[in-house]
Design a protein around this nucleic acid. Sequence first.
DNA 1: GGTGTTTTCGACCAACAGGCGAAAACCTCG
DNA 2: CGAGGTTTTCGCCTGTTGGTCGAAAACACC
Lengths: 231, 231
Amino acid sequence: MEAEGLIAHDVLAVVLRMSPSSPEVLLWRRAREPHEGRWALPGGRLGATEDVEVSVRRHLAEKVDLAEVAHVEQLSVFSDPHRGPAPRRVATAFLGLVPSDADPAVPDDTAWHPVDALPETAFDHGEITRVGLDRLRAKLSYTNIGFALAPEVFSISELRGLYTAALGHRVSATNLQRVLTRRGVLVPTGTTAAPGPSGGRPAALFRFSEHRLRVTDPFATLRPPDATRDC
Amino acid sequence: MEAEGLIAHDVLAVVLRMSPSSPEVLLWRRAREPHEGRWALPGGRLGATEDVEVSVRRHLAEKVDLAEVAHVEQLSVFSDPHRGPAPRRVATAFLGLVPSDADPAVPDDTAWHPVDALPETAFDHGEITRVGLDRLRAKLSYTNIGFALAPEVFSISELRGLYTAALGHRVSATNLQRVLTRRGVLVPTGTTAAPGPSGGRPAALFRFSEHRLRVTDPFATLRPPDATRDC
DNA sequence: GGTGTTTTCGACCAACAGGCGAAAACCTCG
DNA sequence: CGAGGTTTTCGCCTGTTGGTCGAAAACACC
């Protein structure tokens, strides 16, 4: 039992990346008990002088180059007393996103796994991964979070592929471009990409106007009356 | 310093209720150091055999009748090492909502305070309250969370008052009714209320179709293609 | 029955998302 | 150099939603 109610606090990160066809999560293979050999999310103990946001970045840096992680946000607390073998652990989970063009070096024990075919995971890490993907899917529709999945510059087709992989259903390129440009999150660079090997019209290249999460509020109904589009 | 990284974990609850004109939060006056005399959110230590959801309900029950709290959801983790005097504390904050017609009995040290005129609060509880109100405001526009603010049955005018108080700006009764009924969250009871003392047409009474939180998804853009309105 | 008050409902308008097909811009091959 | 194939882009149409306004409905009081 925990002395005087003191509890070990962990931080965990669901780091997602869109492979051409499906989302992948970064997992590492545990070398020690408990759950030796199972795959686990990056993370570790909360340190005495750091908050959870700082802590998760510190632990993440051991598994992946932090510069490649374009966005990190808090997900939820997992505290079921039976979420793992004793001693009891409470974890604050985060969502991290890596752009599709980044292929950061990872340690030998670490690898990307498609989220729809997860191996046996340690603790409740499979469930936590699911929560992370759900959060990403929700935010794709009402925020500019796509910036964290896409390369610096990209064509609409590439972006459509990323959205399709993340959402798990077809996405119309026409509609995607229109929605994102109307919200002002997408800006044309003026340049075009070289056509593919089988020809075709060269694709115009775009970039995200902002690389920090912003809610593109038309999702907010029941707006204030006059409303000259405040944020 | 925490032995071996073990840390005290607290749960806190931002319990909100809409007074006729403005949102109020439930606070209690601390009788002991630290921060003796300041106003604090309900909460306390996470127990050894409970998860945070169970724990926050247990602590909440000491300050207010749990049957009156219509909705509870996790907000965020607050873990700044300097969020309060030593020893270090990490807190999982929750949002709780009490319907406007409920006036639960509270202990002598506990009272409702308008959130736009908070007294001096303990720790970072003022900031946490702000986060709770922001969450409520966001969810009012794309969920049925109003059920947790309203009485069992109510008129559109009453509901408009609640939304106005929560959002801090005028809300059109016409639009409110249309949006909520179209989403299927509002259903007419068939009954009408007695007119007020100064006359007027008697108001039709409504109830929420569901008393559990549900996302009323038209907020989700980039829907699946065929989409015969799944949930 | 008239006046005042409150609620309700219909109509209009603007913004937005989704879909379709034609046109544009490129390739390769004959 | 023109024809056919490929990919992207753009314009148009449609249905839905949110916001607003004003008229009509339903009541109390005088």
